[in-house]
Design a binder for these strands. Structure first.
Length: 431
RNA sequence: UCCGCAGUAGCUCAAUGGUAGAGCAUCCGGCUGUUAACCGGAGGGUUGGGGGUUCGAGCCCCUCCUGCGGAGCCA
């Protein structure tokens, strides 16, 4: 008798195995009991036939409640009537821990109830599939950069001052000093780019914005590459190559998960290949005006406008060269039009919104110093950041990509809250 | 912060201002191939809190709380 994971059973037809897991669901029909066991690696229909087992085994099978932890032994058998095509002919069974009435029944539930039970909700099939996709995406991101000789340099979570203004930061006490939870690792990454050339960070970021939409979380994960000597056109190529390769990877390796999620992959497939449509900010305004929006130069885009601008081909849309006035202080101005910043936003299709924001960074010490003044930022807090220009300034570019928005898009989710194991939202800090 | 919607059994939802119900879950019983199985039975309620109108309020009015959807802001 060998222990096995459910995912391996297809290769163990005819053999006797023992499975440890939890009872996902059970059905009975007279002298037959069907126990669907899950072990994290898959789901297994285990069949208990009354005349074929000891009475003790039959009774245990009847006593097991939803989500009771248990082990089953038996012979692995191919059977087209079983979901998955493989089932277990149960020989013996033992309940490890009997589960009292489990809150999440195999019927519909509302979001409030499910979020209050997030720690249990993670066991559900759909949530299981989403976390698998997230896992593949995260590994794909690291693999992408590793293969291109980027060095992972993680930024601090506790920071002394704001990256882009203090109003949206979570504040905490740091031995009598004020500290803030990071809302971006970028400023810390730029010095590292001077050390290693090509770097990236990947970690949680925090925004105290009182946002209540399907596209916002208080705590979300962001991956941010930063590349020395990279100029704006190459940055656009990098973002495009990055996103398209990740889509291709998930489509290739998460077929089952996307199937469980009933994701229409035909809407995702176009995003796996390059190029992506690119539109200049000025042309975007013109396009919006043509569609009847009251957009004018200098406006940022709302959710509806982003959706209107995104291509209906299923590819993300890259919007370039935003007005400098509505973008961050550290962005390099366009040499042809200093009112514009060399900035890009990548908008996911199907209304999933902005997944990437990036830019070429200001390389000049004097200009950066001027921008810090213009934005009324505390000069002393940015001395170290100015050092990146003071000691061997160099052109460099980078972007940030929000992981949950990408997971949400790939999985076709209605809301970002399912894309992260424990979502932190307005008025929700439990579990 | 603003606009809109909602809160009834453990869960998802019904109920003209006039006796609070169903499905699922739980417990008991039945069924030799079920696919969120099915069939029969049982238990389960201070209708979010407070105040008001009325002979009578789950339903109407005021207020507070909680949640949902959206706006703004952003990834």
């Amino acid at each position: 008798m060998r222990d096995a994971e459910i995912r391996q059973l297809r290769d163990l037809i005819g053999q006797s195995v023992r499975i440890h897991g939890w009872l996902y669901n059970s059905r009975s029909s007279g002298k037959l009991r069907f126990l669907v066991v899950r072990d994290g690696s898959g789901y297994l229909q285990s069949v208990v036939f009354k005349p074929g087992v000891e009475e003790r085994v039959w009774d245990e099978a009847g006593r097991a409640t939803q989500e009771s932890s248990l082990w089953v032994t038996g012979r692995v058998k191919e059977d087209p009537r079983s979901p998955g095509g493989v089932e277990l002919e149960v020989a013996d069974l033992g309940i490890v821990s009997l589960c009292p009435e489990y809150p999440i029944t195999p019927k519909e539930h509302g979001p409030d109830f499910l979020l209050n039970n997030r720690h249990l909700w993670l066991r559900s099939k759909r949530q299981h599939a989403i976390m698998r996709v997230r896992n593949e995406l995260v590994f794909g991101i690291r693999d992408f950069f590793y293969q291109r000789n980027y060095v992972n340099i993680d930024s601090p979570i506790l920071t002394p001052a704001a990256c882009e203004g203090t109003s949206t930061l979570f504040e905490t006490d740091y031995f009598g000093e004020k500290a803030f939870l990071s809302q971006s690792g970028q400023l810390y990454l730029e010095p590292a780019a001077a050390a290693h050339g090509k770097v990236y960070c990947f970690g949680p970021t925090f925004r105290a914005e009182k946002s209540k939409t399907r596209r916002h979380l208080m705590e979300f994960w962001m991956v941010e590459p930063e590349v020395a000597w990279m100029r704006f056109p190459e940055l656009l190529d990098l973002a495009e190559e990055f996103v398209s390769s990740l889509v291709a990877r998930v489509l290739d390796r998460c077929k089952h998960e996307l199937e469980w999620l009933e994701r229409d992959v035909s809407k995702l497939e176009p995003a796996a290949s390059r190029p992506y449509p690119r539109i200049d900010y000025g042309d975007a305004i013109t396009k919006l005006q043509g569609l009847g929006y009251e957009a004018k130069f200098g406006d940022d885009f709302g959710g509806d406008e982003e959706t209107a601008l995104s291509d209906d081909s299923g590819k993300p849309t890259m919007i370039t060269r935003y007005p400098a006035a509505i973008k961050a202080f550290y962005m390099e101005p366009d040499a042809d039009d200093p009112a514009r910043a060399l900035a890009v936003d990548v908008i996911a299709p199907e209304g999933y919104g902005e997944i990437i924001g990036g830019s070429e960074r200001i390389g000049s010490y004097d200009l950066l110093e001027q921008r810090i003044r213009e934005h009324n930022l505390p000069r002393e807090a940015f001395e170290w950041y100015l050092d990146v220009r003071r000691y061997g300034g160099f052109p460099h570019s980078g972007f940030g990509m929000g992981i949950e928005r990408v997971v949400s898009w790939m999985c076709g989710l209605q809301h970002l809250r399912e894309a992260i194991p424990y979502p932190r939202m307005l008025n929700r800090l439990y579990p």
